[in-house]
Simulated scan of single mutants.
Amino acid sequence: MAAEGEKKPVLEMVQADGGDEGCVTFVLHNEDHTLGNSLRYMIMKTVDVDFCGYTITHPSESKINFRIQTRGKRHY
């Protein structure tokens, strides 16, 4: 948790230990369906992307869990 006066990160990358190298989850803070759906649409246009989706953890939180799965290694 950020201390008082510190800025909270807008974007975090979450990678499970021993997880698939072509799959990663990002956490976007202070965002909602407007960015989530638009970003998902544009990323799915990429040929190497197998899956892209997002969830909003709870309606009272403005945070998105955004998951991308690609064919092969990471492309970011």
Results as ranks from 00 to 15, higher is better:
residue 37 N to Y: 01
residue 36 G to H: 01
residue 71 R to I: 10
residue 35 L to Q: 03
residue 14 V to M: 10
residue 58 H to Q: 08
residue 63 K to F: 02
residue 52 C to E: 03
residue 16 A to K: 10
residue 45 K to Q: 13
residue 8 K to P: 09
residue 32 D to Y: 00
residue 13 M to D: 13
residue 34 T to W: 01
residue 10 V to E: 15
residue 65 N to Y: 11
residue 2 A to G: 08
residue 11 L to A: 07
residue 58 H to I: 03
residue 32 D to H: 02
residue 57 T to F: 04
residue 8 K to N: 14
residue 46 T to N: 13
residue 70 T to N: 09
residue 41 Y to K: 13
residue 17 D to V: 12
residue 47 V to G: 13
residue 73 K to N: 13
residue 42 M to N: 12
residue 52 C to M: 04
residue 72 G to T: 04
residue 60 S to Y: 08
residue 46 T to V: 15
residue 76 Y to W: 08
residue 59 P to C: 05
residue 71 R to A: 11
residue 50 D to H: 09
residue 47 V to C: 15
residue 61 E to R: 10
residue 32 D to I: 00
residue 68 I to V: 12
residue 66 F to R: 04
residue 41 Y to I: 11
residue 33 H to M: 04
residue 5 G to N: 11
residue 17 D to F: 06
residue 31 E to C: 05
residue 54 Y to W: 07
residue 43 I to T: 10
residue 54 Y to V: 03
residue 49 V to P: 01
residue 23 C to N: 14
residue 76 Y to L: 15
residue 13 M to P: 05
residue 17 D to Y: 09
residue 11 L to S: 06
residue 4 E to T: 12
residue 24 V to S: 11
residue 12 E to G: 06
residue 60 S to P: 02
residue 36 G to I: 00
residue 9 P to M: 08
residue 41 Y to F: 08
residue 27 V to M: 07
residue 73 K to Y: 06
residue 5 G to S: 10
residue 73 K to L: 09
residue 17 D to P: 14
residue 57 T to A: 12
residue 72 G to F: 01
residue 22 G to S: 05
residue 22 G to W: 00
residue 23 C to A: 14
residue 12 E to M: 10
residue 56 I to D: 09
residue 11 L to R: 07
residue 27 V to Y: 02
residue 75 H to K: 15
residue 25 T to Y: 02
residue 30 N to Q: 14
residue 30 N to I: 02
residue 55 T to P: 02
residue 47 V to L: 11
residue 74 R to T: 12
residue 21 E to Y: 05
residue 13 M to F: 07
residue 44 M to Y: 00
residue 33 H to R: 06
residue 46 T to A: 10
residue 38 S to T: 11
residue 39 L to Q: 05
residue 7 K to V: 09
residue 42 M to E: 15
